[in-house]
Design a protein around this nucleic acid. Structure first.
Lengths: 331, 331
DNA sequence: GTGAAAGCGCTAACAG
DNA sequence: CTGTTAGCGCTTTCAC
């Protein structure tokens, strides 16, 4: 049995093909009687629309493209959950692309995924290369950048201030009594760099900027690297009494390394992470972290991208963050 | 400037449209001279193939559909990395769907993603509902099930034995001297149940099956739940001297809970995880785990799905596992 | 509200 | 090896 087409349904319902098409896509433009006849015919024939044909004829898709830099970074799980949920209730599908923090790969993905044109594009940060930016600007589809308050957005931005997050964490650590706070960072994308800037400026404002106690690399951030970076930080600055980490994986690695060295957390070393992935709140001791609204960002990005009045929206939507203070910074 | 089509390229190269099409898809079927002319014309016109048109005309896609039950479970990161890498070198795109461990959602995704027909489907385990299985059997596209040695495969299987993994872990724990080993499990999908069966049978073979020390739930497995389950396990069986966990998140939660209770790992309690996600080997103490070949499974699944001689392949490919013994089970 | 005609851009099938 | 002819299944126009 061949698959039913629009024409088969039309015959079954004794109407024209175009009426079936309209009954399905824009039910309001069709009389109730016909709509019901069509619905019955669809059920009877088991008709499933052919997306390729629809795309070709309309040169439109009802899917939105989502580009994330990593799937192993648990930060994006929650973002994707928000996106999936919102997309599902808006009845659009999503296409996930993993750029692996590689602008060239991002460009390739865009080239490939922007054809046929999606209903919208969601991507991470503002670190696209020039070619990608041009592609996005020329594409006739809304673009939302997330996770960061990008300065010169392509269209719209939904995120939070990584800079302020770090500042806020640092003020807390200073208030808790730490005086020689270091910074550990990896995968230093613009967001991680904003965190580093926040760290520096907060210290500067407190007159504690020297010496600079940082240990930073561009390698992929993971738990193991956290330990390595702590080792190198303590080698250079044995007097460190606390560490702000550019993300939670590193913070966990720092905690483990402290345990191996017999350093008491929070007494000998205070630790603060960034993002507040579930796991840090379960570690022993529980780790302080800057909680970022990842699920909401995902949801909101979809809403923005699909908003028919997107042009009237503010270009930048700041969803904020919340510092979750836990045992690891309360000596 | 309108977008260039195949016809534009053909005019530019002074050949017919079908020649351009062939030069692009099957370069071997075209003379070198023409191929070069076509390539130049493509470059000059900036031609980008229209996928929708191609799909419609050929009723084929060069994309493969990948369904995973979770993106927050780090198990699938590696699998997806393997899939992505293999897909990229085979020049096919992938479409990721997240079933969220929900058979109905899986069925919906299949209905939606199997149209137009993908070059293949990769999905997790054998727990699809009847409707999904029927859809997959009727679809004219290869199906590979991964992560488990499914008994009645739809087409092919690439995985490892969860049962044997658990048995092997248990034998090691018994050898290490643990005598009252408990099992902690969550998200008890068929793979987790196989692990539980392995645990039970290994104990049975050693004559240590009673009393049964298990704490199992269907909730989503995460670090926090590991602690909760340990608490309930110890309440019922305070004599437990070791725990096999159905995955690494739980194992980490168990470790943290032990630390909170002042129980020494591995002396008071031995801990073994499953999957060997990078993090467990960094914890203090480093946690023993059953290492599963997730990256290879992903790669191999793509190779299988795309293999033109797929029919001659063995239905089940067992990629094995490796027990990584660490401090947490060496009292 | 509904329909008829005319493609969207590409590829399968067959000829040469 | 290359070209001709006919669609793929749907939606867009424009009539009615």
């Amino acid at each position: 049995m061949k698959k039913a087409t629009l024409v088969d349904v039309a015959k079954e319902a004794d109407v024209s093909a175009i009426t079936v098409s309209r009954a399905l896509r824009t039910p309001d433009m069709v009389s109730t009687a016909l709509r019901q006849r069509v619905e019955r015919a669809v059920a009877k024939t088991g008709y499933v629309p052919n997306k390729a044909a629809s795309m070709l004829a309309s040169s439109k898709t009802n899917s939105i493209v989502v580009l994330v830099p990593s799937l192993s970074n648990n930060v994006f799980d929650e973002v994707l959950r928000g996106i999936e949920e919102a997309a599902r209730s808006a009845n659009v599908t999503i296409q996930i692309g993993n750029t692996m923090y590689d602008p060239l790969r991002e460009q390739q993905l865009l080239t490939s995924l922007l054809n046929p044109l999606p209903a919208g594009v969601i991507l991470t940060g503002g670190e696209q290369n020039e070619a990608s930016k041009r592609i996005l600007q020329q594409a006739q589809t809304p673009v939302v950048q997330i996770m960061d308050l990008v300065k010169d957005p392509i269209h719209k931005v939904v995120g939070f201030s990584n800079y302020d997050g770090a500042v806020s964490a640092l003020h807390h650590m200073l208030d808790a009594g730490y005086k020689r706070i270091g910074f550990i960072g990896a995968q230093m994308d613009p967001r991680a760099q904003d965190r580093l800037r926040g760290y520096r400026n907060a210290l500067y404002d407190s007159g504690l900027q020297e010496p600079e106690r940082t240990s930073v690399t561009n390698e992929k951030a993971d738990v193991k690297l956290g330990g390595t970076l702590l080792t190198s930080l303590l080698t250079q600055h044995p007097d460190c009494d606390a560490v702000l980490c550019s993300n939670d994986d590193l913070a966990l690695g720092v905690l483990f390394e402290c345990q191996r060295r017999g350093l008491n957390v929070p007494r000998d070393v205070g630790i603060c992470g960034f993002n507040d992935l579930g796991i840090v709140s379960e570690a022993v001791p529980r780790v302080t972290s800057v909680c970022t609204p990842r699920f909401e960002i995902g949801q909101c990005a979809v809403e923005t991208v699909l908003d028919p009045h997107i042009n009237t929206r503010a270009p930048v939507l700041d969803l904020g963050f919340k510092l979750h203070v836990r045992e690891s910074t309360q000596p």
